[in-house]
Amino acid sequence: MNVGAELPGLSVQVTRDQLVRYAGASLDFNPIHWNERFAKEVGLPDVIAHGMLTMALGARMVTDWVGDPGRVVEYGVRFTRPVVVPDDAEGALVEFTGKVGEVRDDGTARVDITAKFDGKTVLGKAQAVVRVSG
């Protein structure tokens, strides 16, 4: 494993359908994630995706790459911009890329993740530490 190595990217069309499903699975029923009227009342352009869903999808790219999800020992992100999800079949396209930022002596590596929606990053300082040996 080398610093700078790129992970296979992941592109996800996040739809309203997926937001409802994720709300139920995560027990996060905040109406800004499914109720357009409510979202607009609080000043959002439309329904937005759960930041935690975007975070989970970023982890999926890492676990697809590392194989065993149990090797993710640390994972953190900042939520910098909302992913606005229109009420149509395509939803919002979120594109994830990642590369190895550091290989450590303790058998772990740091993966730096980028998540883009509408040409802009929606996660900041998104980093996962994975156990790559042992």
Binding site: G51, M55, G70, V73, E74, Y75, V77, K125
Partner: peptide, 13 residues
């Protein structure tokens, strides 16, 4: 209120 950041440190899966 908005979620600013989130981190998980896993001691085991």
């Amino acid at each position: 209120m908005v979620h600013g950041d989130q981190r998980f440190i896993h001691h085991r899966p």
